[in-house]
Simulated assay, not measured.
Amino acid sequence: MKAQEKNLPRNNDTGTWESDGWIGCYGRGVTRRATQFLVLVAAGLNSKTIAQRFCMSHESVNQRLSDARFHLGAKTRAELVAKAMARGVIMPKEAEPCA
């Protein structure tokens, strides 16, 4: 994660990703792509819809979410979203921006 955080300024990246009323903050225990997928899962999208948005297979999406579940210690998608919110990985758009 440290290398990813170090590259944010070089890539002109703010370290956040917004979609469908949610914000994801990179570098808080899961990868950038997994953070993007977590935002969409929190917004209620399924793996197939997420895969279509990113032009990839739904198996790839499921694998990234499985990795995120492992890193956050979650067993289900609902628990994954709850633990991601508790860690500050994702939050509703109305919440404070990532610091």
Rank of each mutant, 00 (worst) to 15 (best):
K2T: 09
K2M: 15
A3M: 15
A3N: 07
Q4I: 01
E5F: 08
E5T: 11
K6L: 13
N7H: 07
L8G: 05
L8I: 05
P9S: 13
P9R: 02
N11R: 04
N11H: 08
N11A: 05
N12M: 08
T14M: 05
G15L: 01
T16V: 10
W17M: 15
S19A: 15
I23F: 00
I23K: 02
C25E: 02
C25R: 00
C25I: 03
G27H: 07
T31L: 00
R32G: 10
R33L: 12
R33V: 11
A34Q: 07
A34R: 00
T35L: 04
F37S: 03
L38I: 00
L40Y: 04
L40G: 01
L40R: 06
L40D: 04
V41H: 09
A42W: 03
A43D: 10
A43R: 00
G44R: 06
G44T: 09
G44S: 13
S47W: 11
S47Y: 05
S47I: 12
K48M: 09
I50A: 08
A51S: 03
F54G: 02
C55R: 15
M56S: 00
M56P: 01
M56W: 12
E59S: 13
E59Q: 11
E59T: 09
N62K: 15
Q63H: 12
R64I: 03
R64D: 14
L65Q: 14
S66P: 01
S66C: 05
D67S: 13
D67N: 10
A68F: 03
A68W: 00
A68G: 00
R69T: 02
R69V: 01
F70P: 14
H71M: 10
H71E: 11
K75E: 06
L80G: 05
V81K: 02
V81G: 00
A82W: 10
K83E: 08
K83S: 14
K83M: 11
A84Q: 10
A84N: 12
A84M: 10
M85K: 15
A86R: 15
G88F: 03
G88T: 07
V89Y: 11
I90Y: 07
I90D: 13
M91I: 14
P92F: 04
K93N: 15
A95P: 09
E96L: 14
E96Y: 07
E96S: 15
E96T: 08
C98W: 12
A99W: 03
A99C: 09
